[in-house]
């Protein structure tokens, strides 16, 4: 079986909340429901990172979540792309200088994988269209990783 081909039509995503306010999370769900319906692209939310091609991460990393971010990233099979949704996951945003916020998500991902592929979706929260737009950008990255870009 050609593993590459199986990725072509359907991206499976795993959603991990690393300490977000839930604003981005409801916009992700909004993108799945009738108005935006990303399932028409074959995008599906799955319950385990081991099934996922794309990781959706939201929120600044709290003290309790930091080891779990790394664990989830390691459990996801290659090739993988991380979508960081919202500005607090990108840079910690409003939650800077707290004793319980350890930093933005990429800070931890780069510790374990310096070549991690991340697409950021700025917004507080981003509209569902911005998330779909970013998924398309993640597609480009996945294609480049697989060498499909002629």
């Amino acid at each position: 079986m050609d593993l590459k081909k199986t990725f072509d039509q359907a991206l499976w995503v795993f959603h991990l909340n690393t300490g977000s306010c839930n604003g981005c999370d409801i916009e992700i769900v909004a993108a799945l429901t009738p108005r935006y319906d990303v399932e028409r692209f074959g995008i599906k939310l799955v319950g385990s990172p081991r099934h996922a091609d794309v990781l959706l991460m939201t929120g600044p990393v709290t003290r309790a979540m930091a080891p779990r971010v790394k664990r989830v990233y390691n459990q996801t099979p290659d090739p993988k792309v991380v979508l960081v949704i919202g500005n607090c996951g990108t840079t910690t945003g409003v939650f800077y200088e707290s004793y319980n916020i350890l930093g933005p998500i990429d800070h931890f991902l780069k510790q374990i994988d310096p070549d991690v592929k991340i697409v950021y979706v700025p917004g507080c929260p981003p509209r569902p269209e911005a998330i779909i737009d970013a998924v398309a950008k993640a597609w480009l990255v996945l294609e480049e990783l697989r060498g499909d870009n002629k």
Binding site: G19, T62, A64, Y96, Y99
Partner: peptide, 14 residues
């Protein structure tokens, strides 16, 4: 509880 604790009051007091 406490996994998502972000220390909001602490930040706000600064």
């Amino acid at each position: 509880p406490g996994i998502n604790h972000r220390g909001i009051e602490f930040i706000g007091m600064r």
